[in-house]
Amino acid sequence: MTINNCIGNTLMKSNRSILYTLLCLLFLSPVAMASEPDIDEIVNKANLAAYYAGEDGRAEVTMTITDNQKRKRLRQFIILRKDKKDGGEQFFYVYFKKPSDVRKMVFMVHKHLDRDDDRWLYLPALDLVKRIAAADKRTSFVGSNYLYEDVSGRGINEDTHELVKTDDQYYVLKNVPKDPDSVEFSSYTVWIDKKTFLPMKTEYIDKNGQKYRIVEVLETQQIDGHPTVTISKATDLAGGNATTAVFQAIKYDINLKGEIFSERYLRRPPREIRR
């Protein structure tokens, strides 16, 4: 627990004694720091660590999709993100570079918490700005083993969370969807790193109780002060195919203007995708 959090919690709970506050401030002991956060805090921090690092960010992503016959397909894109508010609404701008048939296409998302996301696709060959129905977030993103929801994050209020285990390294959370009909899984278990709060592994259980999908982090780095996933992998255990995603040229807090996430820059890519 950090000092700020300690003070924040203390102030909010104003009925606590002043003595406690003083103790907290003066004797911020290793014991106090090691005290376990509650489950909501873990979920919140993991959400922020995984999807809201910095005010904005940029990364070049290479996805390699390997099917069950070892055939490979490549997806290369640049992703820009801007947060309206930590844990709240976000904007995403995805500019495709490869393969050739999707080159220069742009996919843009205005992520909302209280309603369906707004999504647009720009098709440069037709100069067409197409609005896309956002209904199902659990469909494949560009034919990979990642889902739209993996890219923009699953709403933390859509599941009930249970802390099933804590060890030296991880908080292990079991998550059960509140609306089971809206998703293809019955539950998923996530291993959250105790230090960075990054979700390091997620295992999905299908409606028959079988584990069928794993998303795992293979490499992280500290970038601009943020623990960041640099290589991850999504595996479809049933289908036998997997996608590896490598994140490069990652930058945070690059002062992306809000207007980048508008029709203007769908038709004319901003310079931020080039450098």
């Binding site: 309603r115 369906d116 707004d118 609005r131 896309i132 129905a133 956002a134 209904a135």
Partner: peptide, 11 residues
């Protein structure tokens, strides 16, 4: 006019 409506896109 184009907007998200009824779980889809209306125009």
């Amino acid at each position: 006019i184009r907007t998200a409506i009824l779980g889809g896109i209306g125009n």
